[in-house]
Nucleic acid binder design. Structure first.
Lengths: 401, 401
DNA sequence: ATCATATGTTGGAGAAGGCAACAAAACCCG
DNA sequence: CGGGTTTTGTTGCCTTCTCCAACATATGAT
């Protein structure tokens, strides 16, 4: 309600919108018959026929006969998003790994590659070269060169979306890097390069590519080096005035806590982040990332007591912070990703308990706390969605361009 | 970006939207020439003429000659929202007062009435009767009976918007009250009654009826009995899955803190709310609301030391929590209302200091922390906006109905 | 095989905004 | 004081998009 857009809308925008709505529906919920589309959009049969016709001409969808007839009446043609119609390159630049993937409409994954890197300081130039080397074979093996419509990049840091500028990536030691431009140059492509925060993309991925009917409000909480949060409010990403929204990892939760690398004291991530886990379980000292997860899993399986109490402790703090997010956002679902996804089975009880104790009853009951369905791929999938967004906002322009 | 609406849009919706956009623009930013409207909406001159013509016929706007010519060229007619075209009744049910007002398009206040009530337990029935008694003369003195298009009600509590149902109003001892229906019956009117949370309406009022160009993200923090927050994200209210969003007063900020009436320990409002102030300054014991504000003001003026440190302490906690909200929402502006508005001059330094210490530098710099421009009227103004929203979503239907 | 049912197809109608040409109302300047 | 310039209101026509109704088509049921 209460729109503050005073922008007017003309006739051609409505066509763009409807074209995009049909394509997006197919992309998000999978193949659908024309009748389904009529029901989902509320548009007329003739209009759907026209829209689907145009999308077919653009090569973005394909029509086929219904797989199996179900009831009386003429069977409706089934429309599917065509992965070859629009493909994107998704890139994830992480503290200890780099991943690239090519994906098409409908979520089809053409190819994927992830390489680990030691957790160190890589320069932006090195990193861009690495990405280019990894991505080159994936791009050249795309079914059709014309198909590439955009590049999405996720990274742990503060980014400016419009021009793909990295303001600050503390774990890589980067600041003020024109990453978008650098990547476009290194990859030698003319498509737009979108750069966004990793947790935001994790939220986007989990929201748009996991079938959770009725969910419109989602909070994604990811444990990496720190804690990142991405928020979907009524189906749209929460970005804030400058795209810095979602820095829940640096909210104060314990004034008696330890000093955070951000300079403050008692931030959520100092109590529930990776460092807190290592701090509490002395035998984990020095371990990070995958090695940390493996070590914890092994010690939990062995019934190590210090690990059990440490994990429960982290879980409780994590849950307390999640309760805060539940009070603030009243989401349908809280999705745990990254470290918390890997250790979910050990954390679950403590997290739910912590959330229950800090959240109010009403919003707590509306929110389910779950492990991410995409696992560690969520940010990569989200990066693809980010790049595909242009297609849905104007299918005709992209496919023609 | 990334819309998840798969709804189609037909031709008549675009007219509704444009009609509403023009009217809303006039309502929010005041009278504008036709040329201004062309620039603001991006629509064609002929279209604006047509739209303004229809709005004039509906009685929602009036056209007049330009007040004074400014440059060369034919002067453009000035269009203004007509307060008599659509009026609403705004109601605020507070812990220690009840307010009613009639307002028209453009924000014009026809009449206003506020009566204090002792802070006690009033039954819903009594309260509805009181509201009806207060509102009756205001309604009957409206310029035209047809003009009343809706009723907006704000109250401290958890409400369900669609049907004006009050789930829980702890400070009044209410739960599960069909307030919307009761008011409609008592007032004997056929217009819709919208009920919403007071802090949400404060945010709405401050956002929509204060000229702050460029602001699209606003957080309203109001100190009443507890702390309520209302959030505007990209121009729209943050409601969450069930309308419970914004319960920032019950986020955990100090695990070593005192027990909150919500059952948890260390909630923000236990550290920075009215009760915390009284707890810290013993001489204030028993005082609440206006009396409390007056007492604090008097003691501050007298240079009372306990009061000074107490107020600074509250201000710091308030600021720490505001820093959290800045990290989470990256808003353009944080607006303080209620108690915090009244005591703003004493709180400001501590609040800004606290916020700076808990917020990250980047979002902190984007956010200005200010006192509400509407003072204690913000929720009432917001209630009017809530009731008026129907007009903007379909001007023709309302004015015709 | 025929009927009922649901869907695709086609042509025309209606609504909305854009466009271009013209008329009108101001200012500017000699 | 009058013509030129500039900006805006007005009017009629055009394009685009969706909707509607009638008809054709493809399946299941009897």
């Amino acid at each position: 309600m209460v729109r503050a857009e005073s922008r007017g809308v003309a006739g051609d925008e409505i066509r763009r919108h409807n074209l995009g709505a049909v394509l997006e529906h197919l992309h998000m919920t999978g193949p659908a018959s024309r009748s389904d589309l009529v029901a989902a959009t509320g548009l007329n049969r003739s209009t759907i026929a026209d829209l689907v016709g145009q999308l077919t001409e653009l090569g973005l969808v394909v029509e086929g006969p219904a797989p199996s007839a179900s009831g009386p009446g003429r069977p409706s043609l089934v429309v599917s998003a065509s992965p070859e119609g629009a493909a994107v390159l998704a890139v994830e630049i992480d503290v200890d790994s780099i991943a690239v993937a090519t994906l098409g409409l409908g979520g089809h994954v053409f190819n994927r590659l992830r390489v680990d890197r030691p957790r160190g300081r890589f320069s932006p130039e090195e990193t861009v070269q690495d990405v280019a080397r990894l991505a080159a074979p994936l791009l050249s093996s795309l079914p059709d060169d014309r198909a590439l419509v955009g590049i999405g990049v996720g990274m742990a840091g503060i980014t400016r979306r419009p021009d793909g500028f990295v303001r600050l990536a503390p774990n890589l030691g980067w600041h003020d890097i024109p990453l978008g431009n650098m990547l476009a140059k290194a990859l030698d492509v003319a498509v737009p390069v979108r750069v966004a925060n990793e947790a935001d993309l994790g939220a986007l991925g989990e929201y748009r590519r996991s079938p959770r009917p009725g969910v419109r409000h989602l909070v994604y909480v990811s444990g990496e080096v720190g804690i990142g949060a991405g928020v979907i409010v009524d189906g749209a990403q929460l970005l804030g005035a400058d795209g810095y929204a979602g820095e829940a990892g640096h909210t104060l939760i314990n004034p008696e806590g330890v000093r955070c690398r951000c300079g403050a004291t008692g931030c959520w991530e100092t109590e529930a982040g990776e460092a807190a886990l290592v701090r509490r379980i002395r035998s984990l000292k020095g371990k990070t990332g995958t090695a940390l997860v493996e070590a914890v899993t092994a010690r939990m399986a062995a019934g190590d007591e210090e690990t059990q109490t440490g994990v429960a402790d982290i879980g409780r703090w994590l849950g307390l912070g999640i309760g805060n997010l539940i009070n603030i956002f009243n989401p349908d679902v809280i999705v745990l990703g990254g470290l918390y996804s890997d250790l979910y089975s050990y954390l679950e009880a403590a997290v739910v308990g912590g959330a229950r104790s800090s959240a109010l009853a009403a919003p707590f009951e509306s929110a389910s706390i779950i492990r991410g369905a995409l696992g560690s791929d969520a940010p990569l999938v989200g990066a693809a969605e980010l790049a595909l967004a242009d297609v849905f906002s104007d299918p005709a322009r992209i496919a023609a361009g």
